[in-house]
Design a protein around this nucleic acid. Sequence first.
DNA 1: CTGAAAGCGCTTACAG
DNA 2: CTGAAAGCGCTTACAG
Lengths: 351, 351
Amino acid sequence: MAENENVARPDGFSGVVTMNDVAAAAGLSRTTVSKYFNGSATLKPDTREKIERACRALNYVPDLHAVSLVTGRSNLVGVVLPFIAEPFFGKVLQLMEREAAALGLQIVIQASNNDTRREAAALMALRAMKVHGIILTPIESDDNRALLASLQKEMRIVFLDSFMDENCHFVMNDNQQSIGLMVNYLLSRNVRPAYLGTPRIANPSRPERLAGYVAAMKAAGETPEVIPVAVDTPTWQFEAFAYEQLLNWCGQGGLRDSGAGGIMCTTDRMAFGAAKALRKFGRHPGKDMLLAGHDNLDICEYMDPQLTTVHQDIERISHAAMHFIQLDPAELGGRFYQQRFPGRLVIRESA
Amino acid sequence: MAENENVARPDGFSGVVTMNDVAAAAGLSRTTVSKYFNGSATLKPDTREKIERACRALNYVPDLHAVSLVTGRSNLVGVVLPFIAEPFFGKVLQLMEREAAALGLQIVIQASNNDTRREAAALMALRAMKVHGIILTPIESDDNRALLASLQKEMRIVFLDSFMDENCHFVMNDNQQSIGLMVNYLLSRNVRPAYLGTPRIANPSRPERLAGYVAAMKAAGETPEVIPVAVDTPTWQFEAFAYEQLLNWCGQGGLRDSGAGGIMCTTDRMAFGAAKALRKFGRHPGKDMLLAGHDNLDICEYMDPQLTTVHQDIERISHAAMHFIQLDPAELGGRFYQQRFPGRLVIRESA
DNA sequence: CTGAAAGCGCTTACAG
DNA sequence: CTGAAAGCGCTTACAG
């Protein structure tokens, strides 16, 4: 019951105001002050006011750790991404932070950096923090499958832009649809597009998009042509990867031999690298051939030529992820929350 | 002392394993188990092993909220940024997350989104979480100056890529030096560069860089020429902003009247927008005029022409920020931790 | 409408 | 080298 308000702490910072201090200042019990913070409707207006005055005077804020300890749940949401500096994730993070702030939730961010052990460590750390839920874009690997399966039973986990298998919650782009959209658009321009894919490390969208390309081509009666890439190179430097892979291909006469009139890339960043490689070979996307990306990063509009791409509905994807985090598991009734949002064609100059 | 290990919680998830469970399983007291987790050297090897076995068997992780409550400090580091999707911040965040993970610290991220009230709310929320420290890039505004000054007394706060005044801790690029580097390089190529600046909202680096340009020009005996921009437009869409502002200027004959042979932009993103505007006026950066950016974003290499720029030493900036967060305030002896890191010229095609 | 008491899961002197 | 006890700042039945 010591008045520690002005006691210097060992680290030299000033002490902390507790609910007891507020109660004392307001002439009430700690219980009543607690009720104030937990939205009890039964407080007299007079009482409310006393508390508010005391809080202001003492600059009081409840200790979130104490609250979490007793309620067994925190206001934290964990976000685990393979790579934070990825522009697509930056956008998603921004949208999620906005929603989280409105809900009084805080985002704890972790990067797995292509390392399944770091991914596992991040997950365990989030568990120790009793996070409200986890939004995860996993690495494309089976290493943590068992861990995730077991964690799913303890806490809310939703996969973003990816999924583990049919037995998980996920929100993502409808890759089959969005890639099909682009393939058909390119075909409608009388061009048979070759496909340039990301390395395996990317995330589980990779195989889906590749499959989407193959399916759309076949459905149109065309022969798919997948440009060979070093699929096992563990990198998130997609521009550099695409540049090198395409340089190889062009150098080996791929451009000429294939007769493809365009290249469709798994992501915009791949397309940026591809454009650079094509320039080296004297090709001009949008003029003597077509080039398309996927994702619609902001920078697309400032490339020369401006990149034609597919917009991922990140607004809805982010919203759905945050929505899931708030869901009472009981509401789901044992079903999995699984949402796919369609993409939208954005035609610019490159195709 | 109830064995709650397998008790279903109200939300349907399975119960939580506590230190008591571990102690019981290991046949030891809770105190001893606690010592194990707090690195006590006095534990018998045999005892350690019993505890480790029990932890593994029960899949136990200490509750971080309980730890924080009793120690009065959390493993959380707050990062408050004006805008998360900014590529520069994405890089910084990635570097900081990596260091944080190695230190067992978690990053809680907040965006102020150009709103000083949201900035204040973020700061207060972080305070309630007893964060280990705060890394802050503030909005360019005086609104939260008093709040920050008072918060500085309670907790570690370091300004990133910015500062409040001389009485604060900060780590940042040496704007005077880095901008001077570019101005002198452009002058060495016999080009008098005009300057294209960001809107005020950006952050406190803005006025510094502008001043750096003016100073370097004057030092070289040249007349500075600052392209007029709508400085009060509250936007982080720098490409679009630069594009529009430069379009205006060119449309009014600025390019011709000024006789400037090049444009130096406050940031790379400004340069991307400027390049697009120049193209509209038939100019080709790198050929019939020079264009330079600042920051060295990854995408610079994939623009056409590749952007000449100044590299900010974000590795050292991020490292210094995290280093400060771990510092015992006593070590500083009342002095402020203030670090400026020099930039490095990166010459590519545009200048 | 308000308050006394127990307890959340842990750490930290202190005693043995 | 190990443990019993008090306490961190809060919430939640429960009583009045």
